Each structure stands twice: as structure tokens, then as C-alpha cells.
Simulated scan of single mutants.
Amino acid sequence: MKGITLIELSVALSILAILAAVMLPRIAELQRAVRVGELRYLHGIVSTRVTLVNIAAKLRAGAPDARACAGGATADNQIKGTGTVCSEHGLVATLHGYPVASQTLGNLGVSAAEMPADRYRVRAHDGRAVFMRADAKEPEACSFTYSQALDATTAAAISVPVVSGC
């Protein structure tokens, strides 16, 4: 007779159970590391796009664009007060030469492909936009904040990512 005995089966199942007990915490830690890495990646994208919008506003120094942006509107490039700047993603609403903090991703130059809705949420309020991982244990503790410029003499600010709840 060919086959396996009950002892062989129980030994094989025991080995599988031990492997599962060892591997599951490691897989959970890898998932956390991916969430942290993707949050830091988005932080870098937002930081870069904010800087590029500010540089464009300063270089154009309030001179309106001669051509329309993607979407058909023309930017005024104001560096004091409210204004608009043309970027590769379209027209960006600005305040003192920096993007306005809003839930509209295009205003910060972030595409939906770079920030999928199933993984991220944006909450904007009082000149701040909080970017959170929607799939984190504590989304508020897996986030960073963009604060728009308060006046013409201060720059916009982006916080260091908080990753304790990822």
C-alpha cells in the first residue's frame, strides 16, 4: 500500500503551522513598509510640484501667459495675493505664488495615477491639506500636511511625514 500515515500528515501540518506563524508578522511588516514608502514618495511629489509652481510664478513675475494652459484657461502668474500658474497638469490656483491647499489634486500637480483614491485621502481646511493613507491602521498617523503661504513674505510648508500609524 502506498500513501501517507497519520503521523506523516500531522508532522507536515505542524511544519506548515510553524512556517505560517513565523511568516505572517514579517508579511505584515512588509505591508507597513510599503505604505510608509509610498507615503514618502507622495511627499516628494508634492514637495517638488509646489517648488516648481513657485519657481514658475517667480520667473514669470506677474506677466500673464500668452498661450492657454491645458484645459483652455490662461494663467496670470501673480506672486502676491491670489493668482494662477500654468503647469503640465493644467491651471494651478495660487496664493502668494504657492499652490492653494485644496482637496483638488490637480491644484498641487498630483495626478490620480500617482495618488489612487483607494489608498489616499486628502482633507483640506483653513489653508492646510492633509494627505493620509486610507488603508493605514490610523490614517491621521500615516500622513503629512501641506500648509499654503500665509502672506507674500512666507513660503508654503510641507510637514515631515508621520508614519507611526502606518
Results as ranks from 00 to 15, higher is better:
residue 71 G to P: 06
residue 30 L to C: 05
residue 94 T to H: 02
residue 66 A to K: 10
residue 105 L to V: 07
residue 79 I to R: 13
residue 66 A to E: 12
residue 117 A to Y: 01
residue 54 N to G: 06
residue 60 R to T: 12
residue 58 K to L: 14
residue 91 L to R: 09
residue 111 S to E: 01
residue 124 A to L: 07
residue 82 T to P: 05
residue 28 A to Q: 15
residue 18 I to K: 07
residue 74 T to G: 03
residue 50 V to T: 13
residue 26 R to T: 06
residue 50 V to W: 04
residue 62 G to A: 05
residue 47 S to D: 04
residue 102 S to M: 07
residue 128 R to L: 04
residue 121 R to F: 02
residue 44 G to P: 11
residue 41 Y to Q: 14
residue 82 T to F: 11
residue 132 M to W: 00
residue 79 I to Q: 11
residue 115 M to T: 09
residue 97 G to M: 05
residue 72 G to F: 06
residue 69 C to V: 12
residue 128 R to V: 11
residue 107 N to M: 06
residue 45 I to P: 04
residue 37 G to R: 13
residue 94 T to Q: 07
residue 25 P to R: 11
residue 25 P to Q: 08
residue 36 V to I: 15
residue 59 L to P: 00
residue 118 D to I: 03
residue 17 A to L: 13
residue 118 D to C: 00
residue 83 G to D: 09
residue 62 G to E: 09
residue 107 N to I: 04
residue 93 A to K: 14
residue 26 R to N: 07
residue 86 C to K: 10
residue 48 T to P: 00
residue 91 L to D: 03
residue 116 P to M: 06
residue 94 T to C: 05
residue 58 K to M: 08
residue 49 R to N: 15
residue 54 N to V: 02
residue 32 R to N: 13
residue 65 D to M: 03
residue 32 R to I: 12
residue 83 G to P: 10
residue 31 Q to H: 12
residue 30 L to P: 00
residue 93 A to S: 15
residue 103 Q to L: 00
residue 27 I to G: 03
residue 92 V to A: 10
residue 123 R to D: 13
residue 91 L to S: 05
residue 49 R to Q: 15
residue 87 S to A: 13
residue 84 T to D: 05
residue 82 T to N: 13
residue 32 R to H: 02
residue 96 H to M: 06
residue 106 G to C: 02
residue 63 A to P: 00
residue 94 T to N: 03
residue 127 G to I: 07
residue 93 A to T: 15
residue 97 G to W: 00
residue 127 G to D: 08
residue 34 V to A: 11
residue 51 T to Y: 00
residue 36 V to L: 03
residue 78 Q to H: 09
residue 127 G to M: 08
residue 105 L to R: 13
residue 46 V to Y: 07
residue 75 A to R: 07
residue 20 A to G: 14
residue 87 S to E: 07
residue 106 G to N: 08
residue 25 P to T: 11
residue 100 V to W: 02
residue 110 V to L: 08
residue 28 A to W: 05
residue 124 A to E: 02
residue 66 A to M: 09
residue 49 R to P: 04
residue 51 T to V: 01
residue 92 V to W: 04
residue 86 C to S: 11
residue 79 I to V: 15
residue 85 V to R: 12
residue 31 Q to W: 04
residue 80 K to C: 01
residue 54 N to F: 04
residue 103 Q to P: 01
residue 51 T to H: 12
residue 110 V to R: 05
residue 103 Q to G: 15
residue 73 A to S: 14
residue 85 V to E: 10
residue 85 V to H: 09
residue 67 R to E: 15
residue 79 I to T: 15
residue 29 E to W: 02
residue 93 A to N: 14
residue 126 D to E: 15
residue 36 V to W: 02
residue 30 L to F: 12
residue 45 I to Q: 04
residue 130 V to W: 05
residue 63 A to N: 09
residue 124 A to V: 07
residue 67 R to A: 15
residue 25 P to E: 10
residue 102 S to C: 04
residue 19 L to N: 01
residue 42 L to H: 04
residue 113 A to D: 12
residue 51 T to R: 14
residue 133 R to W: 06
residue 87 S to D: 06
residue 46 V to C: 05
residue 116 P to R: 05
residue 54 N to L: 01
residue 93 A to R: 15
residue 90 G to W: 03
residue 33 A to K: 10
residue 107 N to D: 14
residue 72 G to N: 08
residue 62 G to D: 03
residue 47 S to Y: 02
residue 77 N to G: 07
